[in-house]
Deep mutational scan, measured.
Amino acid sequence: GQVNVNNTTYTFPTPKLAKEFAQKAAKKYNLTVHVSGNTVTVK
């Protein structure tokens, strides 16, 4: 799974890890998680 945070893309071996990372990043920066297919964007 891929996660985009502040124009930086992070790649994870599983969608589960990507989702967990996205949720932590969203909480940390007070942003929202947007899911589109296999790509998760935090903005």
Rank of each mutant, 00 (worst) to 15 (best):
V35M: 04
T9M: 09
K24A: 10
L17D: 09
P13R: 10
H34I: 15
T14M: 02
N30D: 05
E20D: 08
N7P: 10
T8Y: 15
Y10S: 01
A26L: 10
T41S: 05
Q2K: 09
T8P: 05
E20M: 12
Q23A: 13
V5N: 12
V3D: 11
H34S: 13
N7R: 13
Q23S: 08
V42R: 01
T11P: 02
L31M: 08
S36Y: 09
T11F: 10
K19H: 11
L17F: 04
F21G: 01
N38F: 04
T39S: 07
T41V: 10
N4T: 11
V3Q: 12
V3C: 09
G1Q: 12
A26Q: 12
N30F: 09
K16V: 07
Q2E: 10
A25K: 03
F21A: 03
V3Y: 07
Q2G: 12
V42G: 00
K27E: 13
P15N: 11
K19Q: 14
K27F: 07
K27D: 09
A18T: 02
K43N: 10
K19P: 00
A18L: 02
A18P: 00
K28R: 09
L17V: 05
Y29S: 05
G1L: 11
L31G: 05
A26R: 14
K28T: 05
V5S: 11
V33L: 06
A18C: 01
V35I: 08
N6Y: 15
N30R: 07
V5G: 13
K16W: 08
T41A: 03
V35T: 04
V40H: 00
Q23K: 14
V5K: 12
A18W: 01
P15V: 13
Y29R: 04
K24I: 14
L31A: 08
N30M: 06
A26I: 13
A18H: 00
A22M: 02
S36M: 10
L31H: 06
V3F: 10
A26F: 09
K24N: 08
K28P: 02
V5M: 12
F12V: 00
F12K: 01
N4Q: 13
T39N: 05
V3I: 12
T8L: 10
N30S: 06
T11G: 03
Q23T: 10
A22R: 01
T11A: 04
N38H: 06
Q23R: 14
G37H: 05
Q2R: 05
Q23M: 11
V5Y: 11
A26N: 06
K27H: 08
